[in-house]
Design a protein around this nucleic acid. Structure first.
Lengths: 100, 100
DNA sequence: TCTGTATTTCTAGTATTATCGAAATATGAA
DNA sequence: TTCATATTTCGATAATACTAGAAATACAGA
């Protein structure tokens, strides 16, 4: 997942999908917003899907992509556990207070 | 940073350094633990350093690497903000309760 | 200075990833 | 069925990244 998020185009896609959450966006909307050629975009979406970071469903001619929040939660939990719980390298407050 | 953490060898290095935090480890200790050839390891450490995910300091013949917790905190905050604060896609509790 | 150990740099081969135009496929509507 | 639109697949190229042996460099101690 880190690897999938580590590409600029894909990170932009994820952020865009989060902004549009929970409705998500269809491919052409993503394309208009990010100005990525369709074949390139399709490739990136495929990668995000194979890493389970997004969900897809068909709506007639369109394909609607949404962020998979469970996967993101997992990623966040992993990082949190590594840094805060398991190793106490980062203070939980520094993250938590942002949520208030 | 996601890209740097997205490589298996480098993620293992980061986890190891977090376990050894705040003392960190010298290169040969990392090498013994993870069994990565020295030149390959050096390359990965260089990448982690260029992404500011680790700190290095010389101790005589040895180089001691430590996890840069500020960078990790930044990464965590970014992800938290994207998922929980800015877009409310993930419930803060699902992360926070792990820290209790 | 010489020696041994730690680590990096050099070099190069291989593999993976990114990019995107063009063609193909999928769907719905007329 | 034909058309128009949405999206993917194909195919090819370029760019990056991974890996690691061998040589070079850095340092400390004798």
């Amino acid at each position: 997942m880190f690897s999938a998020m580590g590409n600029d185009a894909r990170l932009r896609i994820m952020r865009l999908l989060l902004t549009a959450h929970p409705e998500g966006l269809v491919v052409s909307e993503i394309q208009d917003e990010l100005e990525i050629p369709n074949s390139t975009l399709s490739h990136h979406l495929d990668k995000l899907r194979s890493e389970d970071l997004v969900h897809v469903r068909r709506e007639g001619t369109f394909l609607r992509y949404t962020a998979n929040t469970e996967a993101l939660q997992e990623l966040l939990q992993f990082l949190y556990a590594e840094c805060c719980t398991r190793n106490k390298a980062v203070k939980p407050q520094s993250i938590v207070q942002i949520c208030k």
